[in-house]
């Protein structure tokens, strides 16, 4: 009898759970058919995407929404969708690195406008001129946003990414390639159209790869001339060279106007390797990681100071013969 009673209780519990889950699913289905139906298309598409409507069916989604929620990343953002007791979706938004952080450990925000300020500086307090650089600061959470608030916050962290992603989903992303962007420029940026195809490759390699920007580059030199540089794996597309790229291109167009010269420098093989190490470390943003006393790393500060002490002349530059000066 005992075994049978416990079996009955277990059965009742299972039945109760399935009723609850049916109620949730019903509420959720109702939500999809009513609340979502009237949303602007872009917002609805994004809210459906964050809960993986492209990856799983309604039943599975609702089971997950009730049981812990569904998480998805957008750049460095982690969005978790849950179903509240009234059947509405609520969203938790945080840095993906804080996935396991409790609300006690993180600064809690409720107003999506705060995203604008959180996006301004890195964890080290450096200004972030490029919002989609992979340098988003950590340590914050918006634990309970509505769908509208979520989209607003995401648009402050990564402006226009949702709109461009949606256009791409619809098959009508308007890509503006480098040549067209360059030729449109006026004023001090007028000269960027002087960059050659090879220089545009270097430009994209410098600024647009995943280590520098999380957008997936969809523009090329022009519609018929693809760049070889990897486009990136980002969820959201980059439809046109941005202002950071155009400003960098302007300086390179100026610098590339110089005529090359031959210099004669005297370096040991290790010193030549060291110069390469220093360039690599700066280009990869690795200088902060080099340990204070790691004098075996060419880009170590003491090593660089040694090289400067040994090789710089009284004018503070590399001592070496400039072929052009001798002419």
């Amino acid at each position: 009898m005992k075994a049978s009673l416990s079996e009955s209780l277990r059965g009742a519990a299972t039945y109760a759970r399935s009723v609850v889950s049916l109620v949730h699913a019903g509420a959720g289905l109702y939500h999809e058919r009513t609340t979502w139906r009237d949303l602007p298309e872009t917002r609805r598409a994004f809210l459906q995407w964050v809960e993986g409507s492209d990856e799983r069916g309604l039943g599975e989604r609702y089971a997950m929404l009730v049981d812990g929620g569904i998480s998805r990343t957008w750049g460095q953002l982690l969005v978790t969708t849950r179903l509240a007791s009234d059947g509405r979706r609520r969203y938790d938004l945080r840095h993906e690195a804080d996935a396991d952080g409790s609300l006690d450990d993180l600064s809690v925000y409720t107003d999506p406008l705060a995203a604008r300020h959180l996006a301004t500086e890195t964890d080290d307090g450096d200004y972030r001129p490029l919002k989609t650089a992979p340098t988003l600061r950590t340590g914050w959470v918006f634990p309970d946003l509505s769908g509208e608030q979520l989209v607003q916050a995401v648009d402050f962290f990564y402006p226009a990414t949702v709109a461009n992603w949606h256009r791409e989903q619809q098959g009508d992303l308007d890509v503006t390639h480098w040549r067209e962007t360059a030729e449109r420029q006026t004023g001090i940026y007028d000269i960027v159209d002087e960059l050659s195809g090879e220089q545009v490759e270097w430009l994209a390699e410098s600024c647009c790869v995943d280590s520098q920007c999380l957008k997936r580059r969809q523009w090329d030199e022009d519609a018929d001339t693809e760049l070889d540089v990897p486009r990136g794996d980002g969820e959201f597309p980059c439809r046109e060279p941005c202002s950071v790229v155009v400003a960098a291109a302007r300086n390179w167009a100026v610098l590339e106007g110089e005529t090359e010269r031959e210099y004669t420098l005297t370096l040991t093989p290790s010193e030549k390797n060291q110069l390469e190490d220093i360039i690599e470390a700066v280009a990869d943003g690795r200088t902060d990681e080099i340990r204070e006393a790691d004098v075996y790393d060419g880009a170590n500060r003491y090593r660089a100071r040694w090289l400067r002490a040994k090789r710089f002349d009284e004018e503070g530059g590399l001592a070496g013969g400039d072929a052009a000066d001798d002419e």
């Binding site: 872009t42 001129p129 989609t132 402006p159 949702v162 256009r167 202002s243 400003a247």
Partner: peptide
Amino acid sequence: FWKEEPSFREVLRTVE
């Protein structure tokens, strides 16, 4: 913004 985001180029598509 001219120098920040959203750019002039893409802001109109962000409003409903």
